[in-house]
């Protein structure tokens, strides 16, 4: 009797994980957003969960775990139980934070190899904008002005070692110029500072500045992508202008902890693929000014590796600010 019971129990224990994988997902899934509600990451997440829930046939709940520029939430996701019930929606900054931690000799909240990509959902190249009243019509003119008076022209950013700072650092490094960095607390205040004339230049995602460009308040000079933007067809890319390795995107991607079993990962990938193609997601992202740029896991992994390498280099070149 006891033997029978223990055999049954053993079989049940063995079967449990297998069963769990077969009918994954059998309970609600948590999507960690490492930023407060309202930002790009949060909006993307809220737009994708509705079609994603239809695919997975389970609720997907958003948990905004904020703090330390996203490090807290990303760390929580990287160290979560790898069962596929916790996934992460992160932005480009996911590759910057461990580098900045390294720079300051801090214990990192996570390392990037703890995360496994599921899919890329959106990627907007940043755009270099100046005020419409400013004398600079091209990147060349801005570069020459900066060379004439090093450290005079100021640019705003969303925060030190933030995405917008790193984009600008790539440009100033490649051009060999010195511009003054004035960090702000978030992307919104950085745009406001440029509009108010408190700084002279800014690298920004197209969404937040497009309306101001159209209203004639700001002038776009170049974009950080490999091709021109559909919404700004007259604006050249840095690559076109002959700058090497000045490539940067504000992207949003989905990740899972690295040890998620392969079958679960397959299901997640398939579900996200269908959800990303859903018209409701596409139209929401279009209107937010950042059209869907879907990449499946293998391509996303390559894209991410190249991006992370460029960012690590940029962080090292900027170094500590004393």
């Amino acid at each position: 009797m006891i033997r029978l019971l223990s055999a049954l129990l053993g079989a049940a224990l063995l079967a449990a994980p297998a069963l769990a994988q077969d009918d994954y997902p059998s309970r609600p899934i948590t999507m960690i957003i490492p930023f407060p509600p309202g930002g790009v990451a949060d909006q993307t997440a809220r737009a994708i969960i509705t079609p994603l829930e239809k695919e997975l046939k389970q609720p997907v709940a958003i948990r905004n775990t904020q703090g330390a520029g996203g490090a807290v939430g990303m760390g929580a996701a990287a160290n979560a139980k790898p069962d596929g019930y916790t996934i992460l929606l992160a932005l480009s900054s996911v590759s910057i934070i461990p580098e900045a931690d390294k720079l300051f000799g801090r214990k990192p909240a996570y390392t990037i190899d703890q995360l496994k990509p599921i899919a890329l959902l959106g990627a907007d190249p940043t755009v270099l904008v100046v005020r419409a009243e400013s004398p600079w019509k091209t990147v060349k003119e801005l570069e020459e002005a900066a060379k004439k008076e090093p450290g005079k022209i100021a640019y705003s950013s969303s925060g030190i070692y933030g995405t917008l700072h790193m984009a600008m650092a790539m440009f100033t490094n490649a051009a060999g110029i010195n511009m003054k960095h004035v960090p702000f607390n978030g992307g919104g205040p950085a745009v406001t500072a440029l509009l108010g004339g408190h700084v002279q230049a800014l690298a920004s995602g197209p969404g937040p500045v497009l309306a101001h460009i159209k209203a004639g308040k700001l002038r776009p000079l170049a974009n950080w992508g490999t091709k021109r933007l559909a919404v700004l067809p007259d604006v050249p890319t840095f690559a076109e202008l002959g700058y090497k390795n000045v490539e940067f995107y504000i992207w949003a991607g989905l990740f899972a902890p690295k040890d998620v079993p392969a079958p679960v990962m397959e299901k997640l990938r398939a579900a996200v693929k269908k959800a990303a193609a859903a018209p409701e997601f596409g139209s929401a992202m279009e209107k937010l000014g950042s059209p869907v740029a879907y990449l499946d896991a293998p391509e996303f992994e390559k894209f991410w590796a190249a991006d992370a390498a460029r960012l690590a280099e940029a962080v090292k070149r900027v170094g500590k600010v004393e």
Partner: peptide, 21 residues
């Protein structure tokens, strides 16, 4: 307390990432 916006240094963090902000 928290990560200094101007320099990126963590002030009084004691290894707690939650104190970053």
């Amino acid at each position: 307390i928290g990560i200094d916006h101007m320099s990126g240094y963590q002030r009084y963090g004691y290894g707690l990432h939650e104190l970053g902000d």
